[in-house]
Simulated scan of single mutants.
Amino acid sequence: MVDVAAADEETAMAFQEAITARWATATADRTTREPGQPGVRLRCYVDLRQTLDSQEQKTS
């Protein structure tokens, strides 16, 4: 699981997109805000066991 704290939703989603390119990821479709706290939070679940080799094999 990866918890992301970012200044804004665009930044949090860009981070999620970047890790999705490398690892199998259950993505989140929205961020959350905590009242009185700056920024946004995003939680996604990442399968760290996927190797970069398997990404290359899937696209071949």
Results as ranks from 00 to 15, higher is better:
V40C: 12
R41A: 09
K58A: 10
T32D: 14
Q37D: 15
K58G: 05
R41I: 01
V4R: 00
G39E: 08
D8S: 05
D53K: 07
L42Y: 01
V4F: 02
Q57M: 11
I19R: 03
D8M: 03
T32W: 13
Q55R: 15
K58M: 10
F15Y: 14
R41L: 04
D47C: 06
A14P: 04
Q57P: 02
A26Y: 09
R41P: 01
A26P: 03
A24W: 05
Q50T: 08
A5K: 11
Y45T: 11
A21S: 13
E10H: 13
A28S: 13
D8E: 07
K58W: 04
P35M: 15
A6Q: 01
A7H: 09
D29C: 07
A6W: 00
T59Q: 14
Y45I: 06
S60H: 08
D3G: 06
L48I: 06
S60P: 04
E17H: 06
T31M: 12
S60F: 04
M13C: 08
A24P: 05
R30Q: 11
K58C: 04
R41F: 10
A7D: 12
R49I: 06
V46T: 02
A6C: 03
T25E: 02
Q57I: 05
D53A: 12
V46E: 01
Y45R: 09
R43L: 04
R41Y: 10
V2G: 00
D29V: 05
Q55E: 11
M13D: 12
Q16W: 02
R43D: 01
L48R: 03
K58S: 06
M1P: 04
S60V: 08
E17L: 07
E17D: 13
P35F: 15
R30P: 01
D3Q: 09
D8H: 05
A21H: 08
V40D: 02
T25P: 01
T32A: 14
L52P: 06
E9M: 13
P38Q: 13
P38C: 13
V40R: 03
A24C: 06
T31L: 12
R43M: 08
D29K: 10
Q50V: 09
S60E: 09
Q37A: 14
Q55P: 01
A6D: 01
T20H: 12
S54D: 08
I19G: 02
Y45D: 11
Q50H: 04
A12H: 00
R30L: 08
S54L: 02
E10K: 14
Q50K: 04
A26H: 12
A14Y: 04
R30W: 07
V40H: 02
M1T: 06
E9F: 09
T32M: 12
R41V: 04
P35C: 15
A28D: 06
T11P: 01
V4D: 00
T25I: 08
F15C: 12
R30Y: 11
D47R: 03
A24D: 12
A21F: 08
K58F: 04
S54W: 00
V40S: 04
A18L: 14
R43V: 07
T25V: 11
K58E: 08
D8V: 01
L52A: 13
R43H: 10
D29E: 13
A12K: 00
S54P: 00
F15L: 15
E56K: 11
F15G: 06
L42W: 03
S60A: 10
C44R: 00
D29W: 03
Q16I: 01
A5M: 10
G39Y: 03
M1S: 10
A6K: 00
A28R: 07
